[in-house]
Simulated scan of single mutants.
Amino acid sequence: MILQGNDPYRGPSFSFGNRVLRALWGIVYLLLFKISPRTFHAWRVLLLRAFGAKIGRGCHIYPSVKVWAPWNLSLGKHVGIADGVTLYCMDKIRVGDFAVISQGAHLCCGTHDYNSENFQLIAKPILIGIHAWVCAEAFIHPGVVVPEGVVVGARAVVSKSLSVPWAVYAGNPCRQVATRKHLEK
């Protein structure tokens, strides 16, 4: 999908097929997804699935959620994705059952190799565990794993995978600030 060794100043970073599919998704997003009524969660799930997203039952995805490439998105059951969330899924984003991604959070799978001559675009997957909560306006970097039951505090910046499940992390840089009671499944 990502072209290697290209000149990003003069040419695309993605294959032609990828760009066409993203253009089609962009049209569907603008005409059918973004303007849909807030309560039409099933409709938005249907549109995302039509573009290859794997989505469990009972998910709530709000109309102002931005999804870069639905075919790289996998949501468990009963996941909530709030208004203003950006799912920049250049690589896979997987969100576990009963997880919540709050308003304005940004999950970003893409970055650049700042040491390469062509500022090579790179992508790494993001995994959000079951019962996790990514709070408002938090930023999750490429390649990060957020374990089961973790709470990532509002406006936290998570640049490395978190190690302790059922913990609360906050700040920039993100660090553990508390533990969380383990929820029954």
Rank of each mutant, 00 (worst) to 15 (best):
A105E: 01
A154T: 14
S163V: 12
V20W: 05
M90R: 14
I35D: 00
I140C: 05
L47M: 14
K160W: 07
A23K: 13
F139M: 03
I93T: 04
W43Y: 12
G84D: 02
G129N: 03
K66S: 05
D83C: 07
L121I: 05
S74M: 14
I61M: 08
A167G: 15
L87T: 01
F139Q: 04
G104C: 11
I93A: 07
R180D: 08
W71P: 12
K124G: 09
K77T: 07
K66R: 08
V79G: 04
I93Q: 02
S13E: 08
N115H: 02
F139V: 15
G143R: 04
G56E: 05
K54Y: 10
K92N: 09
V150R: 00
F40M: 15
F139T: 07
L127T: 13
N115T: 11
V145L: 10
A138W: 03
D97T: 14
R175M: 01
V79F: 04
A99T: 01
T179C: 10
L21N: 06
C59G: 13
K77N: 07
R22N: 15
V146M: 10
L183P: 02
C108G: 07
E184H: 06
Y114A: 02
P63S: 08
W68G: 02
H141T: 12
N118A: 08
T179G: 09
L3S: 04
Y62H: 09
G143L: 14
G26F: 10
L87F: 04
W166I: 11
R180T: 04
V45H: 10
A132K: 04
R22E: 14
G171F: 03
I35Y: 03
E117I: 01
E148H: 03
P8M: 01
V134Q: 02
S64Q: 10
Y29N: 05
I126M: 10
R44I: 13
C89P: 00
V144R: 00
G149I: 11
I101F: 08
V100L: 13
E117S: 15
T179L: 11
L75Q: 00
Q103V: 12
G56P: 09
L46H: 10
G80E: 02
A23T: 11
E148N: 01
A123G: 14
Y62T: 11
C135P: 01
S116E: 07
L3E: 09
R175H: 05
A178V: 00
D91C: 13
F139A: 09
A50K: 03
P147Q: 02
S64A: 13
K160H: 15
C174R: 00
V28Y: 01
R44P: 09
C135V: 05
F14W: 15
N72D: 01
P125Q: 12
P37V: 09
H41E: 05
W166G: 05
F16A: 15
W43D: 07
V20Y: 02
Q4H: 14
C59M: 11
V164N: 05
G26Q: 06
G110N: 03
F33A: 09
K92L: 06
V20S: 08
R10Y: 08
A136L: 06
H141G: 12
A154L: 05
T86L: 13
W25N: 06
R94K: 12
P37H: 03
H60M: 09
N118G: 09
G96S: 06
V168K: 04
R175T: 08
A23M: 12
E137K: 15
I122L: 11
W133Y: 12
P70F: 14
L73M: 07
H41A: 12
A42T: 10
L46S: 11
P70G: 15
P125I: 11
I55K: 06
